[in-house]
Simulated assay, not measured.
Amino acid sequence: MTTTQLQPMPSDWRRALAVVAHPDDLEYGCSAAIAAWTDEGREVAYVLATRGEAGIDTLAPEECGPLREREQRASAAVVGVSEVEFLDHRDGVVEYGTALRRDIAAAIRRHRPELVITLNHRDTWGGVAWNTPDHVAVGRATLDAAGDAGNRWIFRELVEQGLEPWDGVRWVAVAGSSTPTHAVDATAGMERAVRSLLEHRTYIEVLTDEDPETYVRGFLTQHAENTGKRFGGRPAVAFELFGR
């Protein structure tokens, strides 16, 4: 059986917006691509639906949320991202629906990206590895909001708030998909990707008994090398690309 090769991501764009549910969602695989893009002078901004406040069993949400926000901002800075916004939906119970679509459409109108990035919106990660409700809701709402952002008659209140329609989204790239179509060379960005994920140290130390750097480097390197088998043998970050 022939393995389908992944195609290079489009390069004719200037601005990207990454929309995910939680702190660390982007760092588990996307950061090497984002570092490469910011190296090229492209603008990338992050929007997170939650502050990840329900993610650490030993920390109350009131303490956990601000800590994870700080870690996320530090993590973004490592890969050249300075704009990080939080929509303040509740971690663990994000609901797909018009409220979430509206918030994401508003963010797209504010940032006016050509490329939107999100995380796997399907029920599983492929096979029987079940996805979380927050990822599903935010990923699906982001795909829908890319169209909502360009229609002035959907969420008319956004125009009243000064957010004019933006119909310039050309692609939505889904990370963590089990059916990727495109990839970005991770070679130049891998060290910063490792450092970026390590900024989520509080979360990682709860997640694993392994040394944090050993865990992070092993996880990211293995995924990049596995993806690279379909991308000319170069370590890579994979995306499923939806054109608009």
Rank of each mutant, 00 (worst) to 15 (best):
P66C: 09
R109F: 01
C30G: 05
E157T: 10
L207K: 09
A60V: 11
V172T: 11
T4S: 14
L48C: 12
T202I: 04
V174Y: 07
G218A: 04
A186K: 01
T58P: 00
A33I: 02
Q222S: 14
A175N: 08
V94A: 00
M1F: 12
T181Q: 08
L100H: 08
L143I: 15
A106K: 12
M9N: 01
G92R: 01
I34E: 00
A146M: 02
V44Q: 10
M190W: 06
V44G: 07
Q161A: 15
R51M: 08
T118A: 01
T4W: 06
H223P: 00
M1A: 15
L241R: 07
F242G: 03
R101V: 04
A76L: 09
R201A: 06
I56W: 04
A16F: 10
V93P: 04
Y215I: 09
A145T: 09
W166A: 09
G176N: 03
G218L: 02
V20Q: 08
N151A: 15
L158G: 00
D57T: 12
L100N: 10
V78G: 01
E160G: 14
S75K: 01
P212K: 06
G232V: 13
V136Q: 13
V81Y: 00
A141W: 07
R90V: 15
T202Q: 06
A173T: 05
R201Q: 11
A107T: 05
R156I: 15
T142D: 07
G168V: 07
T50E: 01
N131S: 11
V93L: 13
E85W: 08
R140V: 04
Q7L: 14
G92T: 03
R140P: 02
P113M: 05
H200R: 01
Q72H: 08
F219D: 12
V128M: 15
V47W: 04
V116M: 04
P8E: 06
R230F: 13
G233F: 11
R170T: 08
R112Q: 15
A224H: 10
A32I: 03
A193V: 03
E225N: 05
T202W: 02
A236G: 05
A21R: 06
G139N: 07
R102M: 02
A224Y: 12
K229S: 12
V237K: 01
R110F: 14
L67G: 09
G80N: 09
D123V: 13
P165E: 13
T132R: 11
V136L: 10
D12C: 03
T38W: 07
A99G: 15
R140K: 13
A175M: 11
E164S: 12
A45Q: 03
A18C: 14
R15Y: 02
T58Y: 02
V136Y: 02
E95G: 08
A146Y: 10
A76Q: 01
I104E: 05
E213N: 05
A36V: 11
E160A: 15
H135T: 00
W153A: 11
V19Q: 06
I117C: 00
T132D: 08
H111Q: 15
P212H: 03
V138I: 02
A137Y: 05
F242T: 15
Y46M: 08
G168M: 09
D12M: 08
L6F: 14
P23C: 04
A54W: 06
R195C: 03
